[in-house]
Amino acid sequence: MLTVFLQFLFSGLTVGSVYALVGMGFNIIYNATSIINLAQGEFVVIGGLLMWFFLESCKLPFLLAVALTILSAGLVALIMERLTIRPLKTNDLLIMIMVTVAVAIVMRGLLMFKFGKEPYSFAAFTEGDPLVIGGAVIQLQTLWVLGITGTCILALYAFFNLTIAGKAMRACSFDPTAASLVGIPVSRMIMFSFILSAMVGAIGGIAITPISLMEYDKGPMLAVKGFCAAMMGGLGRGRGAVVGGLTIGVLESMTAGYIHSGLKDAVALLILLSILFFRPAGLFGNAAMQRLKGH
């Protein structure tokens, strides 16, 4: 009985860690711009597919492939921000969000053109049999994903709270005008936030591809789940996305295990909705902060 429960839990953590990584990317851009970047899922796909390209097609060493993949994703984000977000010069969030939708469609078109429609995968980071805990198995790659998620959180926390650049980036979100008055280059900060979130997305893509495979049109589903994770934890809260993602993942697998697998997404969404209704700022959100930001 306990074994079965543990297995559901591990399965939930595997899925949840994927959502958490995507959710974190949403938070970075949201923190700097208040934009919801719906192309976030595509960055994850770019991560997975480019990693395959560098690793399996170009036969590059693992770490070099990782570095190239992350840099390329950052470059794509830079181009995206320069060509679409910056020239927009509007405060209308709706338009900006729709632009990210349109950009996501362009990226999907390009990915399909380059990689075709079939799924891709590469070997897990470490070879070996899955870990057995209390009779339940957990894949080694899941541990990698969890570890990477944790590292990203710590790194981002340190960046946003301890470095000048990070603090400046947060200031841009609270009040762009005031931020520029105190000499923060707001538009450069927005660009950095896009690059950073794309890199986090790409890291996520690299980490999850051995588990879930990657194909050109996985982005929208990842974006929706990641968005829900970020919302559940409270938009803009780094660790909120992680807790949100893991919560949704575990809820899904518990529903699949104990209720009915066809309803797993519905139950997770219902719980998300009730959290929104009863605690609109999310589990970790701060209501006063939300008012300050005018949302």
Binding site: V4, F8, S11, V15, V18, I211, E252, M254, G257
Partner: peptide, 10 residues
Amino acid sequence: DSDMTAQLTK
């Protein structure tokens, strides 16, 4: 979906 362990366990 990226993991079907829960369903298989069931």
